[in-house]
Design a binder for these strands. Structure first.
Lengths: 174, 174
DNA sequence: CGAAGAAATTTCAAGCTTAAAATTGTTTGG
DNA sequence: CCAAACAATTTTAAGCTTGAAATTTCTTCG
C-alpha cells in the first residue's frame, strides 16, 4: 500500500475500497426497470378506469372494493378491506358511503363490538359486480393477448421475485 | 381410452369446436398476472410517495414533472409535458402553478404563438430536483436489490413485450 | 368499579386527477 | 378580410387519496 514512494499522491481509484465507497452501484438499470413497470401498470390502469366509467359509470376504487367483498358472502370488516386494498381507512369510509347509498352494499354493526362495521354486497351489488367483472376480465385478457403463454409464465415468476424483493426491502427499511 | 362405446351420449367436452365457442379462453392467468403487476407497482409507488413527503415534503407528481424538465434545459411546452406524463392537461396547470410559486419552475409565453406556455426548471428547481433524484435512485435500487441481475434483464425484456401487447390492444380498441 | 390505554372508524384539510366546458389565440378557406 | 375550424390551455365539478386528529367503543388493570 504505502511501499511505493515514487508518487506521493496516488489517484483515488487505485484504492478499491475507497472506490467502492465513492462510486456505489450504478442505479440506471433498476430505474429503467421501474419506469417500464410503471408505464405498463399506468397504461392498463387508465384503460380499465376509462372503460369502467364508459360502460358502467363506475370507478376503479368501487370495483376493487366490490371485488374484495365478492368472495366474502358474510361480509368483511372495514379494517380488513382497507388492509387488503392497501389504502387508508378514511378512504374506505367515503367509498362505502356511496356504494351503500346506491344499494350495492349493506352495512351493519357487529353486535358484540359496536366499533366494528361489517359490509357486504347486496344481491343487486353482486349482480352488478358480476357484470363488471366479466367485462373486466375480457379487457385484461385483450390487453395481455400479445403475450405468449410462456412469456406470461416467466413474467409471473419474475414478478413474484420482484415482489419478494420489495417486501424484503420494506421490512429492512422499517 | 376411446374404445368403449358403452355410453351413447357423449359429454359436451368431446367436441373441441363447440367447447371453444361456449367456453372462451380462461382469463384467470391474465388476471393473476395483472394483479401481481399492480401489487408490485403499488408497493413501490406508495413507498416513493411516502419518502418524498418525509424527506423532501414533496409529492410524486411534482417529482415526475421536474424529471421531465430535467433533460430539457430550454424548457418544454405544457402539452408535451402532459403527453409524456400521461396525465390530463388540466392537471399540469395546477402542478405548474404551485411549482412556479415555490420557485422551482419558470414559465413564459412563446412570442410567436401566445397560446403556448413554456416551462423550465429554475437553477433552484434543478438543484432541488437533483437532490431528490439521487435519493430516489437509491430507494428504487434498494427496493429492487433482491433481484438477481439476470432476473432484472428477463423482467426488462418481458415487460417490453407486455408493453407492446398493451399498446397493440389499445390501438385495436380505438 | 373506573380510569388509562388500545382499537376501529370517521372527520378534516390539503392535494391529485379526470372529463367536459369554456377561454384565448391562430389558421384557413371563401 | 373574416368567419369557421382548430389548438393550447384553464376552469369547473366531482371524486379519490392521504396523514393526522378526533370520536366512539371496548379492554384491562389497579
Amino acid at each position: 500500500m504505502t511501499g511505493d514512494d515514487t508518487f506521493d499522491i496516488a489517484p483515488d481509484w487505485v484504492d478499491g475500497e475507497t472506490k467502492a465507497l465513492e462510486a456505489p452501484h450504478d442505479h440506471r438499470a433498476e430505474l429503467r426497470l421501474w419506469l417500464r413497470l410503471l408505464t405498463c401498470s399506468t397504461l392498463v390502469e387508465s384503460e380499465v378506469r376509462r372503460r369502467l366509467r364508459e360502460e358502467f359509470d363506475s370507478t376503479l376504487p368501487r370495483f376493487d372494493l366490490m371485488a374484495q367483498l365478492e368472495r366474502a358472502p358474510d361480509g368483511m370488516v372495514l379494517g380488513e378491506v382497507s388492509k387488503r386494498m392497501m389504502v387508508s381507512p378514511g378512504n374506505i369510509t367515503v367509498l362505502v358511503e356511496r356504494l351503500t347509498e346506491s344499494g350495492h352494499l349493506s352495512r351493519s354493526t357487529l353486535p358484540t363490538d359496536r366499533r366494528v362495521q361489517i359490509i357486504a354486497l347486496t344481491p343487486f351489488g353482486r349482480a352488478e359486480f358480476e357484470k363488471m367483472a366479466a367485462r373486466h376480465a375480457d379487457w385484461i385478457s385483450d390487453l395481455f393477448a400479445g403475450l405468449a403463454p410462456d412469456d406470461g409464465s416467466v413474467l409471473m415468476d419474475e414478478l413474484a421475485r420482484l415482489k419478494r424483493s420489495i417486501i424484503a426491502s420494506l421490512a429492512r427499511g422499517a
